[in-house]
Design a binder for these strands. Structure first.
Lengths: 137, 137
DNA sequence: TTTACAAATCGTAATGATTACGATAATATT
DNA sequence: AATATTATCGTAATCATTACGATTTGTAAA
């Protein structure tokens, strides 16, 4: 998702487009991968020293609620990334740099067939490892 | 995995087979699904009142380390279940009761083909929903 | 079956991520 | 510019998990 698209969406939904919110979204737009709340705080700290946990977490949840974010949990910490495309897909996630690569493979058709009487609500398919760039280093 | 098998493995690896450890493994063997540390503590409390967090968490990690447990993270909490069969598989997890059903579907062959230069180390494929039993209730 | 020692457990405090809150500041609309 | 609403601050509370010194207990050898 484009940074400008995300900022417009905030406004469109009646929320205020503050400098901090724009800076947060810019961080994720440039990261192009999963980042933690702490990563975000560290990034914002120089420009907005003393930024409150409340601000950071409240906005992360806001972004998530209005569909600007994808989230996952790695090692007991929530990770966030800006929503990418709108079609269904999954991710390879690099354990070193957190960057992601879209995977088109999704076996849910097959799973639905295998789970006849089960009410399937959601699923998670993630691949972890080291991306080509990090393998170099 | 059978309860007795798990207990034997503890002894085989040189760890002591205490009453608490057996009770813990029995809890998971009977649960046949994912449970939290808190679930375990609540279950043990009547018989072993005042049981220490240290004991619970240390043993959960021990069980995990020697391959008696499978773990996953749901809603920010670690969940544990006794290892089931030895062949590769994934799980449907019921959001109500935590019980699991094995899924034989695994699309990793296809993924390997799609991620040529990526060093794949691990993957997670989980399906969430409501099991047939919980749909009744 | 006692002894001895390593391992396990207890009771509790510390940690780390996240959530919550009353007071203050900033944004958008009129 | 005034006003009402929303956002942010500073900080405390919460929740799961980890850690630690003191004590107890299983195990295997005497």
């Amino acid at each position: 998702m484009e940074l400008n698209e995300a900022i417009k969406e905030i406004k469109r939904q009646g929320y205020k487009t503050t400098a901090k919110r724009k800076a947060m979204l810019r961080f994720f737009a440039e990261a192009d991968g999963y980042r933690t709340a702490k990563d975000l705080i560290n990034h914002l700290e120089p420009a907005y020293k003393g930024i409150s946990f409340d601000t950071v977490y409240r906005n992360l949840h806001l972004f998530d609620n209005i569909g600007l974010m994808e989230t996952t949990e790695l090692n007991g910490e929530k990770h966030f990334r800006i929503s990418c495309s709108h079609h269904h897909h999954h991710h390879f996630i690099c354990k070193d740099c957190g960057k992601t690569k879209e995977i088109e493979v999704c076996p849910m058709d097959e799973v639905h067939r295998a789970l006849d009487n089960y009410a399937i609500e959601d699923h998670k398919f993630e691949i972890y490892g080291i991306c080509p760039v990090c393998q170099e280093a």
